[in-house]
């Protein structure tokens, strides 16, 4: 009995940590590239996007794991999409109601969470095969991994493009007497690709060294 609960704690821990590093959705699984490239221009929208994804991921994982025994194999993707679309619509409505400025800034990228591969991947790979509790832990791990990654990329880009992180000025700008001249290219798509590419290289290097 004791042994059993210990191993299940280990399982929970591993499930949670997998999302953060070993199976990090962006860096290791290369999923959810669209929001990763599109909303990482600044930390605030990236963070909001991350929170939306966490919300949708948890809800859809709960629902999918609850109905996993009722699923017909050939209709399962339809069920996943239906579930995800529902919660994304709810998240979109909540954003519009309570964070109108953020909703404007994210524009079409919130509805696009529906086709975000991370969520359907977790529904398929984890929630449709496991119990509710472990699915929730998996959702939190994956969601946090995604949010953290987005925030890391966004802070690099925001720092280089505006000299600020989370709209807090860190480098003093030249136009206000400092030394830093913003590299506007980093707020553009080219900045997203370059930052993501270099980060991927760095992560691969680190994990290669560790193994």
């Amino acid at each position: 009995m004791d042994n059993n609960s210990q191993s299940s704690i280990g399982l929970y821990k591993n499930t949670f940590l997998a999302g953060l590093w070993n199976e990090n959705p962006v860096f290791r699984l290369m999923l959810g590239m669209c929001p990763t490239l599109a909303v990482t221009g600044a930390v605030k929208p990236a963070f909001t996007m991350g929170c939306c994804v966490i919300f949708v991921l948890i809800c859809s994982n709960i629902v999918v794991s609850l109905m996993r025994n009722l699923l017909k194999p050939h209709l399962r993707i339809m069920m996943f999409t239906l579930t995800i679309a529902t919660f994304v619509t709810i998240a979109d409505l909540i954003l519009k109601a309570f964070l109108p400025d953020m909703s404007d800034a994210l524009g079409p990228y919130v509805p696009l969470i529906i086709v975000n591969c991370i969520i359907i991947c977790r529904a398929e790979a984890c929630a449709s095969k496991n119990g509710m509790f472990i699915s929730i832990i998996d959702a939190i791990g994956m969601g946090l991994g995604f949010t953290l990654t987005l925030c890391v990329l966004a802070s690099i880009r925001e720092l280089l493009a505006t000299g600020a992180i989370f709209e807090v000025q860190i480098l003093s700008l030249k136009e206000s007497g400092g030394w830093f001249v913003p590299l506007a290219a980093f707020s553009m798509p080219i900045g997203a690709f370059v930052t993501l590419g270099l980060m991927l290289g760095l992560i691969n290097l680190v994990s290669k060294k560790r193994s």
Binding site: L75, T86, I90, L93
Partner: peptide, 30 residues
């Protein structure tokens, strides 16, 4: 084959409708 899909569609539709109804005023105001 499809009872779950149909039931879920109704349920989710209801869920969105309730959310929308409760937030509509705020969204319109915004």
């Amino acid at each position: 084959q499809s009872w779950l899909l149909i039931a879920a569609s109704f349920f989710f539709g209801l869920l969105i409708a309730v959310t929308n109804a409760s937030l509509k005023e705020r969204i319109d105001y915004n």
